[in-house]
Computed example of a mutant assay.
Amino acid sequence: MSVRDYSLEEVHRQISALPEDLSALAAPAAKAAAKAARRLGAPRRLVLLGSGDSLFAAIAALPAFAAAGIRGRAMSGGAFLTRVPSPVTCGGPATVVGISASGGNPTVLEAMAEAGRLGHPTVAVTCAADGRLARAADTAVVLAPGSSAPSPGIRTYQAMLLSLLHLAQAWGWTEAGAPAALDPGPLARAQRLSILGARATADAVAQLLAPVPLVQLVSGVSALGTARYLAAKFSETAGVPAMAADDEDWWHVHRFGHDVRHPVLFFLTPGPGRARALEFARRTAARSPLIVVAAEGDEEARAVGALTVPTAARIVGTVRPLVDAAVAAPLALALARHLGRLPFCRQ
């Protein structure tokens, strides 16, 4: 595939499609997840495997599985292959979920095959019904957002994250309000608000980030999957090196390699660990300008930022990543336009 196959117009179209996709895919996701849950039963332990966007979606979904009483880990297929757990030595089989939008990630496929050989139940989460991953697993949750032109993962990321959240719900998610948490109506409205907020501030964010050699993103643990997803969109869409770190790693390690003149982007959206992330943001604001992603009306977060990207405020709990991830592509798109680049063009 050539760089000429990619366009910023397609990135814009995919961003605009997210709320409609959320509404259209909710029922198919619930049905597919319920079928997979009936097929395998609820696991005691869970391993989520992916690379890139798939891994970030897995990290973002882990709190939902914890709310279902399931101990889970997210890792790459390669990491799993270096220490494949035997059901005999680890107290019984763990359900292994392989995540790949295309269904063709070779490392995830190899890891899933090894997991099955050792007797671990396997689930595929994918956008490709006829992909190798769906055929190789014991059961599959397939959620396709529809045909699109080539683009960094935007609609497919949401489809995988939505599949994982519905799978957690089908496995017994007991968080307060869980039956209504994945109601597509409020979620789609919240996404629209977050997209509008990101688009309204994106040009200002791009101007701040354009001179920066490495975009540094920081978040609390609960938002780390979303922060890593945003870093990936900056790299894929705008050709800008970017990395995400949790707040402790940022403060104890990475800040020492950061030019204090350059802005730091902090995720301060609602969720466990936000108070601690806010404290690290305050410390950082004493030495560097901050771009803050925070819920609309969060005056504590706004006070520490030179610029605030607002997200919808009323969505809480483990579905929050569906709303917060919606700001990623608009910010990356604005930076790509500011720099005059196409997706994947730096190679």
Rank of each mutant, 00 (worst) to 15 (best):
A200P: 06
T107W: 09
L109Q: 06
R255W: 10
G77I: 02
G317K: 07
V141C: 01
R71V: 11
N105E: 11
E279G: 08
L187E: 04
G119E: 12
V316R: 15
L333C: 06
P145D: 07
I99D: 00
L265A: 11
H120A: 01
A37Q: 07
Q14G: 01
A29K: 00
L196G: 09
D298T: 08
A137S: 11
A24D: 10
S219D: 05
H258S: 10
A68P: 05
D298F: 09
M243R: 15
A64W: 08
A68W: 02
F344P: 09
L307S: 06
E10Y: 02
R282L: 09
L208H: 10
S54L: 02
L49N: 06
V221M: 04
G98W: 00
L167D: 01
P330K: 05
A200E: 15
L278D: 03
G172L: 02
G239F: 13
L81V: 03
A198T: 13
Q169F: 05
R83S: 12
L182Y: 08
E114K: 14
V309F: 06
H338C: 14
V142T: 07
L214M: 12
G78E: 12
A68S: 03
T82Q: 09
F256I: 07
D259P: 07
T139E: 06
P186C: 08
P179N: 09
V205C: 15
V260T: 14
A242D: 10
R117K: 15
L209S: 03
R346G: 03
R83L: 12
R276A: 15
L268Y: 05
S23H: 04
D53F: 00
A198N: 12
F65H: 06
P152R: 07
C345E: 15
A29E: 00
Y6M: 05
V84F: 04
E20A: 14
G271D: 07
E279M: 08
A198C: 10
A232H: 08
R341S: 13
L49Q: 03
G185W: 07
V123R: 01
P263K: 14
A136F: 02
P63C: 10
E114C: 05
T139A: 01
F56W: 11
E236F: 09
L48T: 00
F56S: 08
L265R: 08
F80R: 01
S219V: 05
D246M: 04
R44S: 10
A68V: 10
L161M: 03
Q207M: 12
M1W: 09
G50Q: 03
L322W: 00
L196A: 15
L182S: 13
A94T: 11
A136G: 05
R38W: 02
G98I: 00
R117H: 12
T107S: 14
S147M: 02
V97Y: 04
A244V: 06
A227P: 11
P150M: 04
R287Q: 13
Q158S: 10
V309Y: 06
T107E: 13
G131R: 11
A313P: 07
I154H: 02
P152M: 06
L48V: 00
G185T: 13
F56K: 02
P186M: 08
L230F: 11
A42L: 05
G50W: 00
A128Y: 03
